[in-house]
Amino acid sequence: MPNTAGRTALITLALQDLIPGAHHDHMTVQVAERDPEKNAVHTWVGTPYAAACRIAEALWGDGGTAPEPDVSPLAAAEDAKRRRDLGGEVAALMSGHDRLTTAAWYPARPGDLVHVHYEGVGTLPAFGETYLVAAGDHGFLTLRLLAHTLPEGESGDGMVGCFAVEDDPEPLTEVWMEAGPHRLTIVRDGRPVHVGGAR
């Protein structure tokens, strides 16, 4: 089976390289059809990654997409790195970032609640943390730890609050990429907008 995720990443990089030095998060791809008889223009606009997925789907069948993995994008990239699969490593990181930034609820807003679930490992029990997205002091957003369920004195105390950030333009990037979307539940206005692990 071909590594379509790696090929999709390479197509994405090729599209992004069309404008040297461009900020990749601000790039779009536009395909236009001009109909002179009807004096109309029909367009498709999307990210370089979305265009690459369509190209890969046409060439190889699945566009490099797969069901939501049960590993974080960072863990998937590390796994590819161990296999010396540069395309897979880049694809894991780009795909993870794209899944975040193209989610219907993105970007984060003040008042959002972010819950992170950790599985138990060895003697460390399963536990969770809840963070609040709040306005920062300098115009960006803060991710503030509200509560956790790790019992006092457990060996994982140093992990608690590790995803808190101050004045960050994208406060969810680190928790999304490191913990993984499958471990997150995001609530906005009392309604879940992302439920990790949901199938």
Rank of each mutant, 00 (worst) to 15 (best):
T43L: 04
P110L: 08
H23V: 12
A134N: 00
R109I: 06
A103E: 08
E152F: 00
T101N: 06
E154I: 04
R99D: 12
Y49R: 15
E119K: 14
T142W: 01
V31P: 00
A52S: 04
V121D: 14
A80Q: 10
H138A: 09
H97M: 14
P20W: 01
G139Q: 02
V41T: 15
A179N: 03
I55E: 04
R84S: 13
D157M: 15
M27E: 08
Y118M: 15
L59V: 11
F127H: 13
P192M: 08
E89C: 15
A134T: 12
H26Y: 03
Q30K: 13
S155C: 05
S95I: 03
D167W: 14
T4H: 07
A126Y: 11
V71Q: 12
R191I: 09
T65A: 09
A103C: 04
G64Q: 07
A14M: 10
Y118T: 15
G88A: 07
N39L: 15
P48R: 07
A77N: 06
E174M: 09
G128H: 11
A76Y: 01
Y131E: 04
A77P: 05
T43W: 02
R199N: 08
P36E: 13
G190D: 06
G46K: 12
L18I: 06
D98V: 06
E78D: 13
F163P: 10
V175D: 05
D157T: 15
L146V: 07
A164F: 12
G61N: 04
D98G: 01
G153T: 06
V193N: 06
V116M: 11
R83M: 14
V29P: 00
D17T: 01
E119S: 13
G61E: 06
H182Q: 08
E129H: 05
P181H: 06
P67W: 03
